[in-house]
């Protein structure tokens, strides 16, 4: 594959020179305006903006304050669990609610790096009310729309069991290591 024969030599025709001049002006325009254009837009649309991390989900959920709550709700808890408790089995109630839907399951199995999401029969609110998880909290986060702001908390045992249970206390969603729960926690739905 040698390509086509060489082009005839000589002075380029005038229209070609006009095109070359246009290209040269284009290049000057691009170079003169590159940083001006970058300064017009937010960080994420800036061509050369550098972040402190390559974890774009962290940038979106932690660094950028304007991230819509709906997306925080879709990704924040998963990101938190993926970072602090990857490979866990996540236990969710079989009685409905925000943790029982496919979106939560997808979030846990992707960004949450969960091994599996299992449905069990237990009382989310009672377990959350009975136990003081504060000494074990390793990460917190927020999600939800402004009117429906929710707070995530992750409580891990000193000896993680590899199983995390989803609990609720008011607007708080607590993801707790099952090692922190008393024996016989599986009893009665919400």
């Amino acid at each position: 594959m040698t390509g086509e024969e060489a082009q005839p030599a000589g002075r380029p025709p005038l229209p070609a020179l006009v095109l070359l001049a246009g290209l040269a002006c284009f290049l000057i325009y691009n170079m003169a305006n590159f940083f001006v254009l970058d300064s017009r837009v937010s960080d994420r649309y800036s061509a050369l903006h550098r972040y402190h991390t390559g974890d774009m989900l962290e940038v979106w959920l932690v660094t950028v304050s304007s991230t819509p709550g709906v997306y925080r709700g879709r990704f924040a808890a998963g990101w938190m669990l993926g970072r602090h408790a990857p490979g866990s089995t996540i236990i969710v109630p079989d009685s409905g609610g925000p943790h029982s839907g496919p979106r939560f399951r997808n979030q846990m199995l992707s960004f949450g790096r969960a091994r599996e999401v299992e449905r069990r029969r237990y009382n989310q609110r009672r377990l959350a009310a009975d136990i003081d998880f504060e000494p074990y909290i390793v990460a917190v986060g927020t999600s939800g729309e402004r009117r429906n702001r929710r707070h995530y908390r992750l409580a891990l045992s000193d000896r993680p069991s590899g199983t995390i249970i989803a609990l609720r206390r008011g607007r708080q969603e607590i993801f707790a290591d099952t090692a922190l729960l008393p024996d016989g926690w599986e009893a009665g739905p919400d």
Binding site: R44, Y45, A47, L48, H49, R50, Y51, H52, T53, G54, M56, L57, V59, W60, Y71, F75, N106, Q107, L109, S110, F111, R113
Partner: peptide, 17 residues
């Protein structure tokens, strides 16, 4: 860390994961 993103980017990442 110069990576750029848009909401779609996270959907691609999620499907990949």
């Amino acid at each position: 860390h110069l990576a750029k993103w848009h909401t779609d980017s996270f959907s691609y990442m999620q499907v990949g994961a």
